[in-house]
Design a protein around this nucleic acid. Structure first.
Lengths: 297, 297
DNA sequence: GCAACATGTGAGATATAGTCAACTGTTAAC
DNA sequence: GTTAACAGTTGACTATATCTCACATGTTGC
């Protein structure tokens, strides 16, 4: 059965040539040279053992057998084109869902969301808050934006966008009382912490050469917040010193609402775009590029 | 538009896999390894940016998008298969017409025609007498059998089957009076000639070392026949000595109806199968092979 | 826990399909 | 009648898409 099928590429060349009435036109449509189409047609003639085209003047016309073949093959290719175009259209019209932690969403992405929609309109981007900071779960989002550190989950494609920097921030009023040259001056303030980033203060202490013991004592007297977003607002309000990804406080630092007296440090984590296996590369890649660009401004 | 079409081979792999429900089964149908099909499916996933199959247990099932694609693609491929099979069927059901000179037909082919029909039934062979001995004409026969010598017509494919041998033949009664060791004993007989083969006697004379002059004299007193077939019958009837392709008198020689006292000679001509350009190779090639075999028995 | 089965994948072989350029034949204009 | 533009075919070479092999991973059932 299948044995009677000629090479599909030859059928495609035949269909285009029959439809357009010219080898050269078919070659243009198929983005090949006319020689390539001519060969395909010849191979089809040989497959069926009859001439499908006859030379008339300096062009070709279908023979009886050629017309017979074209009637079915033309419809079949229409059908193929329609089916592929329909699926492609449906895929591209489906909104692209980006999951993002609430703090990153509120303090970095939302201010840039309008521009993102304008620059990548074909994405039909929809943003949702990733419910927990936990990753590696089979999320139904098209992509997830998150700070994560290696090892990265094996069942997802991970595109690192930038290294994470964290900094300790205080309100301008508190900053005035700080000797920024002395890292230990930190301990003159109340430390603000969040359960979602338990490793932040130890990393900071370690990088700044502070004693773990002193840090632990300070944390005992610190204040906890359920969410990074509230932590930062607490710092703005002058409740103490918060530690947060630099990215999330950058706008506040440039506006002067917050001060980072002791600078910032780099952590092993990266801001990453996490894609499920079988993600749509043609949709997620432009998004990753957009993030890389926007993050470097 | 065309731009949205994935590679056709990938679509074929998809269609077979969807229809058969298994990569391995599709690979068998397509006569490739399962790895090849697996790659094609992967490339299709990437083309559309969605998974078309989902792993379920140790097999695959179509996803929603996969089903959507299969509904159209399956029909399109059915259509393609039907169209190709229909054309192929029509071509193969068309009788294959073999043109053949009347003498060759009567004295060699007809006795073997039954066997030919039996051994190549799918040819639906029909035999017609080639009206003239002239070749190179755009005949509407599928193939032409003829003795011809180079140069061969450029607009036809020529398959040489065997070299031509000609021999001078006489009835047994006449043969008894001949000294077969002497070629010149030929001239004791009346020479029988046919207009369709004017070169036969001169070739014979030349090969046997007979004087052209003596030959011409003998031919003056010879008897002409319109057709080779009558010429041979005249020899059988004892009217004189005929010259004919050995192939045409072989049956008579073995039965003793005719004798070739001086043996036979080879001419530059060949028995050939002449095929029009764009002839159906798959039909004419088995016929050529059959002839080669039958001629060597 | 192991054998049988089904699909996925890296590396390298190979065959299909393409390019280029030269050639034949057709049409039309000067 | 000559020439130029055009359409298709073809030989020689090349490239890339496609396949195979062998191994890896994951599932099922005894």
């Amino acid at each position: 059965m299948q044995h009677s099928m000629p090479p599909l590429s030859a059928l495609r060349a035949f269909e285009a040539t029959a439809r357009l009435g010219s080898v050269t036109a078919a070659a243009n449509e198929l983005n090949v040279t006319h020689g390539a189409v001519s060969r395909q047609l010849k191979s089809l003639d040989e497959h069926f053992g009859v001439a499908l085209f006859a030379k008339v003047g300096r062009g070709l016309v279908l023979t009886h057998h050629g017309e017979q073949l074209q009637s079915g093959v033309g419809e079949a290719f229409s059908r193929l084109r329609d089916s592929c175009a329909a699926l492609k259209h449906e895929v591209e019209e489906t909104p692209f869902t980006l999951a993002c932690p609430g703090s990153l969403l509120a303090r970095w992405l939302i201010p840039r969301l309008d521009r993102l929609h304008r620059e990548l309109p074909e994405l039909k981007l929809q943003v949702v808050v990733s419910d927990t900071e936990q990753l590696g779960k089979p999320s139904d989002a098209s992509a997830t934006l998150a700070f994560t550190e290696p090892p990265w989950p094996a069942d997802m494609a991970v595109i690192p966008l930038m290294s994470e920097q964290i900094c300790a921030v205080v309100s301008p009023a508190l900053a005035a009382q700080i000797d920024s040259a002395k890292p230990a001056s930190l301990f003159a303030n109340k430390l603000l912490v969040t359960a979602s980033r338990p490793q932040a203060w130890p990393q900071w202490a370690n990088a700044k050469g502070l004693e773990q013991r002193a840090l632990e004592d300070a944390l005992q007297q610190g204040q906890g917040f359920a969410h990074l977003y509230y932590l930062i607002e607490a710092a703005v309000a002058g409740l103490g010193v918060a530690i947060a990804p630099k990215l999330l406080v950058e706008d506040d630092l440039s506006s002067g609402r917050l001060i980072a007296p002791w600078g910032s440090i780099e952590t092993p984590a990266r801001l990453c775009l996490l894609l499920p296996k079988h993600a749509n590369v043609r949709r997620s890649e432009p998004l990753a590029e957009w993030f890389k660009q926007a993050l470097n401004e």
